[in-house]
Amino acid sequence: MSSTSLTTGRTWRPHLPRRHVPVLATLVLLLVTYGIGVSQYRAFSNIQVVFNVFIDNGFLLVVAVGMTFVILTGGIDLSVGSVVAMTAMVSAALLQDGLPPALVLVIALLIGPALGFLMGCAIHVFDIQPFIVTLAGMFFARGICTFISDASIPITDGFWTTMSQARIGNPAGNFVSISVLVAFAVVLVAAYVLAYTRFGRNVYAIGGNAQSALLMGLPVGRTRIAVYTVSGLCSAVGGILLSFYTLSGAPLIAVGMELDVIAAVVIGGAVLTGGSGYVFGTVLGVLVLGVIQTLITFDGSLNSWWTKIVIGGLLFAFILLQRLIGIRFT
């Protein structure tokens, strides 16, 4: 009986849960931009345009998935762009030295997570701001790139070229690359981990309230370190995919990529203070960026810098949206 008085504490609201609003806004945005494209350019309606968006942004998607983990805990990882470049660079250099591709793959996929692990330790154990630690990581990884070589190293390895050129398509001639499949796999695994494992739920809990998570007995330190390791791993996978894509390792590739990645995650509806967001949203965020880029390429009169301006504007809009939802929260 008296329980009724307690349940009235819940305020009236439509059925749409608030945390889904940003993701849905992103979905609407994606459809609108795509719609604009289709209405303006005949070629846009070709399904291959969509596939190309995936092909061009597969590595970005993988990295953004890693970043989603970090941002969900309320952290940030500025090192991703550099780690992507470092992974590509290390692979290229090792392949040039004649190491077998399998071994190269293993080594390249270990470096990123190792750096992520170290950064996570510095953040957790020494209580230094993620921003600064990952900034150091960014410098470090970029430094390693140029330490290896000042110039771009081409990749001629058979495995790499196969992966680069392989096309998985339908009879109509539409296709995607291996990278897209890898990216999809990463997305699925990540979504599953976040939704169905304790680690995933701990990530959300820490982002919601780290202090509470600690008092609820959750392994806060371990989770935090793991999140940066995951981000490092995703960056490493992204780096491999990028090296498939470009068939080279270049010291200055993916400079500033962390900004695109962060923007994609935020546009995908994740809250930068942590605790709210979905991998699916991040996928949408990456697609929005990709479609806008395609749109601007299609339109001869608009120049590439409009991408940045539009991304900035979208960032602002989504942060404001989150802020408005947040205000209604309290």
């Binding site: 230094i128 600064i132 150091a136 470090f140 790139c145």
Partner: peptide, 15 residues
């Protein structure tokens, strides 16, 4: 760009 390596070390040390 290699100076970034040193910067990384300096950042970590100072922090």
């Amino acid at each position: 760009q290699t100076s970034l390596l040193f910067k990384a070390v300096v950042v970590i040390a100072v922090c």
